[in-house]
Design a protein around this nucleic acid. Sequence first.
DNA 1: TAGCTCGGACTCTAAAAATT
DNA 2: ATTTTTAGAGTCCGAGCTAT
Length: 345
Amino acid sequence: MTTEQPKPADPPVAYPLPPHFQHYNGGTFPPPPPPPGVYPPMFAYPPPVEGHPEGGPPPGLIMFHAPPGMVYAYPPPPGQLAFAVPPGAPSPSMMKPKRKQVKMACTNCATACKRCDEARPCERCLKYGIQDSCIDGQRKERKKGVKRGPYKRKNKGMDPTFSDGEFPQPAPPENGEWQAASSNGSPPANASTTAAAIHAVAQFAAPPEAGAGYYPLYYPPGHFVAQIPEGQEGQPQVVQYFMGGYPPPYGYAPPPGATFVSAPPPLPGQPVEASNSSDKSAEPAPTTNGVVIAASDGADPLSRKRGRISNGTPGKSKKTKTSDKDPGSEDVDADKEDSDSLPSN
DNA sequence: TAGCTCGGACTCTAAAAATT
DNA sequence: ATTTTTAGAGTCCGAGCTAT
Ligand SMILES: [Zn+2]
Ligand SMILES: [Zn+2]
């Protein structure tokens, strides 16, 4: 259970609440962030569902939500059901806002491959005093009549982020089998059920600086809320699970049945190095299930190599530009201060 | 070190296919 | 008639170069 633990001396971990979570519980969940220098707590969230009427989760689905760099996942004991996570599925807290593009960039920005805006003289052109040439280009019409092969059937009504249809399940360990399950703990009837179950699970990312990858998470059976009570759709639900972190006052109290652990138990055949916390002596490895989530610096034996998930799209029709001297280029993110150069013509 | 270039990751969306 | 899947076409991030 909860044990007192020395205050971690680790640098604070940014824990931004994604915009799409704001609508949960009136935006009041999770509670205010912990004090600086302290790892944030872990929560259980219902997953945001794209296209869902209430923007809430379908009944029976729970998304486990954990901060970055704190996840260790272990296979459940032999015979236990578990959820697997599709590789590359980002943690909700890690999801970075989708980049927004203008419908049509002005020719100057387009040439410079820089961000433009709707205004015409766009901000960038104004900045470089080239507003006179700030005009829209001409968008080519998409080719018609191009035949395609048969479409692969995907799951409908699911969060596209996690519905990839098929993804490689982790290789089952010698001592037991990992399997996917539906949110109510019953065995999956088919791939789509499996996908739905997967939806209920989150995958976590380690902080980029740690160079670690996404960690799969596995849940034991019976640890999911089977049904979200009437009228509580979209509300955070508590599920039973084990979590690592810092107990109050540094962190938040775990949900009923949850426990804090200071470090993950060593993986069979793979010693686990120290967690980020200087204290890792106490190691109350839970025995009820095979899931342990503990504070860590990201080094995880089960980690997958981080990397962009390219949809295989082969670039595009490249433009060839070499000599064209376009005023201003170096650009920074929209929310940062820009410091372009002066136009050179 | 600041500014520029540009490869390619990401986004947007309309056409093709699949369903209802 | 609608919905879902795909992929063409464009935007623009950010690594690597260049100029100062
Ligand atoms: Zn522009
Ligand atoms: Zn412009």
